[in-house]
């Protein structure tokens, strides 16, 4: 309730990650304690509010890494150090703590929560990273991940094609048991299929339209499951129970739309 009112923060720094992606950093002790995979609602006064994953923390500062898509994310890209922004959260259920060597599979801006996951756990367990993007310039956080494999849709760097096309070969030569993934749903659906066939464990971060973040409004439902409150991170068993995963998402009015 009272905690679900935006806290007004000053932008501490901004950073360009790629031609279409920027990171902003805020002093916000609450989100800086979040579990990787959790998200916040960022409010740009007079523009609107969007759900954004926490992409990293430093002390009591939190970072958010945002792709420019429509009006509100474009407004966030305009922010400079000293500008004000509202933040509420963290919300939802994040990734579990890895118990052994694990694989991270990220695509597009989906790598944002995985970067925080990596930051939190790479000292304790060995994490191999596979990342995909549209082109070389859009590959995010490669210097931090030190990825095993990268792929680009246009072949400008690494494997020419989807990251999932090389994931199977990679897994065949290793004995990982656990995969953490975030990115476009068709990619995650493929990762899910691979995990099913190979009997691997999986956690995936889902994305749906979120208008409240607290489990009230029903805009984020997948098969009646509230992605904002009971997700966004779900495991393989949960995915098994969904008929809409990999197929259908919902528009702002609640109509079904192909993912």
């Amino acid at each position: 309730m009272g905690n679900d009112k935006p806290r007004i923060r000053e932008v501490n720094l901004t950073r360009e990650e790629s031609p279409s992606v920027r990171t902003i950093r805020l002093y916000d002790p609450r989100t800086s304690n979040a579990t990787p995979g959790q998200f916040a609602m960022l409010w740009v006064p007079d523009s609107g509010e969007v759900p954004i994953a926490i992409s990293g923390t430093q002390g009591e500062y939190s970072e958010f890494t945002i792709k420019r898509r429509g009006e509100i994310t474009a407004e966030i890209h305009e922010l400079e150090a000293g500008d004000k922004i509202g933040v509420r959260g963290p919300y939802g259920v994040g990734f579990s703590r890895p118990e052994g060597p694990s694989v991270i599979v990220g695509g597009g801006y989906g790598v944002a929560p995985l970067r925080y996951f990596h930051q939190r756990h790479s000292r304790d367990v060995s994490l191999e990273t596979l990342v995909g993007a549209a082109t070389a310039a859009e590959l995010l956080f490669v210097d931090q991940f030190n990825p095993q494999i990268v792929s680009t849709d246009d072949g400008s760097k690494g494997h020419h094609g989807f990251i999932t096309e090389v994931l199977e070969d990679f897994l065949a030569q290793s004995d990982f048991e656990m995969i953490y993934t975030a990115g476009p749903e068709p990619m995650m659906a493929k990762v899910y299929q691979i995990c099913k066939t190979r009997g691997l464990k999986l956690e995936a971060s889902l994305e749906r339209i979120m208008k409240c973040g607290v489990g009230l409004c029903g805009s984020c439902l997948i098969d009646g499951f509230r992605v904002c409150k009971d997700g966004p991170v779900v495991d393989l068993d949960r995915l098994d129970g969904f008929s809409e995963f990999g197929r259908w998402t919902r528009t702002s009015s609640g109509k079904k739309e192909r993912v």
Binding site: N3, D4, K5, G48, V50, I72, L216, C217, S253
Partner: peptide, 10 residues
């Protein structure tokens, strides 16, 4: 589609 956001505040 409904109103513009924010739609809910605690």
């Amino acid at each position: 589609e409904g109103h513009s956001s924010p739609n809910v505040v605690g």
